[in-house]
Design a protein around this nucleic acid. Sequence first.
RNA 1: GGUGGGAUGGCCGAGCGGUUAGGUAGCGGACUGCAAAUCCGCUUACAGCGGUUCAACUCCGCUUCCCACCUCCA
Length: 450
Amino acid sequence: MKVYNSLTRRDEDFAPMDGREVRMYTCGPTVYNYAHIGNFRAYTFEDILRRTIEFNGWKVKQVMNLTDVDDKTIRGANTLNIPLNAYTDTYKKAFFDDLKKLNIEPAEVYPAATDHIPEMIALVEKLVEKGVAYKSEDGSVYFNVRKFPGYGKLAHIDFDNQRTGARCAADEYDKENVGDFALWKAWEKSDGPVGWDSPWGRGRPGWHIECSAMSMKYLGETFDLHTGGIDNLFPHHENEIAQAEAATGKEFVKTWMHCAHLRVNGEKMSKSLGNFFTLRDLIEKGWSGREIRYVLINAHYRAGLNFAFSALEDARKALSRIDACVEKATEGEAPEWAKKHLEVFTLAVNDDLNIPRAFAALFELVREANAKGAAGTLDVFRKMDKVLGVIFFGKAEKAELPDDIKALLAERAEARKAKNWAESDRLRDEIAAKGWSVKDSKEGQTCTKK
RNA sequence: GGUGGGAUGGCCGAGCGGUUAGGUAGCGGACUGCAAAUCCGCUUACAGCGGUUCAACUCCGCUUCCCACCUCCA
């Protein structure tokens, strides 16, 4: 298996450090709102990644954090005048519901930031002891980026040639360097009831510290994989490395992977453009999680993905073609040609998760199975679906034929037996008007809900 | 201004220095009483301009356009 490592900026052979279990950390949601389909692009990418690892016979221990304390969650809770956890619980639940709708395999651990405040405080203390962090006048603690020589190695940023200050928050005037970031933020009025006691006074953790603290707690000081959206590469992941490595003196993560953003109709998703969709929005519009998953995974994760409703329509048709073929597939020894397609499929997924090429192999299998017969191909479909998770998942339930339709079909069968084509066609129209479509084959009529 | 990634046939979307990506749509054919489904074939796509090469969509340079990051957006 080969993957592109953002840290080294090249494709590398990938295998678990311990030879059997991959320990991976994936940056999860900030639970202040329903997640949008751009967020889910990242989560489906991570799902494909863990499935591919499993496809290769390794075990996975995945940790996905839930950021349940930050500016937005605090603002949301305080606006509604409810406790922080009451506010975030709604969105945590929604997030897990959404993951199920997309057939995303659950991670082994979903640590919430608010359950790990002591671990974070301990890590910050360690950084203060080591002299790489300092307390400011207001009781916040900052990481001094100049004290960590490797700072910038992930983002490959040259900090002497930046537009520093362009987006620098006004309330951070007492930092030693512009690049210094908060490990612990002193309590402010706007925080209201939210806050924890610490050696530096009441406050709350900075954003980055949770990931360093929780990943090391569950995965160890050095682990295999860390992933997220490309926007997390800097500053979030850069800062995680700084915090962890400055504290332990060890390499934090072997391989970093980042997925590109999703655009909608060629534009960045934004509420003002009216092209901002949560998963719920799309499901309300009548699209299934399965169709959405198909669209999200059918582009290489490092390339921008342009999400459009026409792509969902294409997905629906392509999936029904797969369904029709799988319907005919049977158990047994796979024919040679089917094994070939599985080989191509395997090469594709192991080549930095090239899912579009993997799909191409799947469709070659479908085409050939339709032409030569699908006997013995079922297991090949199953194997491919270990990675894709879209073949056997979430198919529309086969609707029971209502009695009136059954009666019409029986009538039609009679008419056809008598070669009364006019009557046969009339009945087909009548059935169609009731929302069902009839197809004829050598085996007889098949009727499905439109 | 810095850094990184892009521009592929109607649409979506892979890929490689010379050999069909794939899906979806369209056209023609086979099959069918007719449809549908399925299969076969087709429409000779690689932003523009130069260069390297026997050969470039693929490498190099320039131009145009797009996107992302440059301190809390997956």
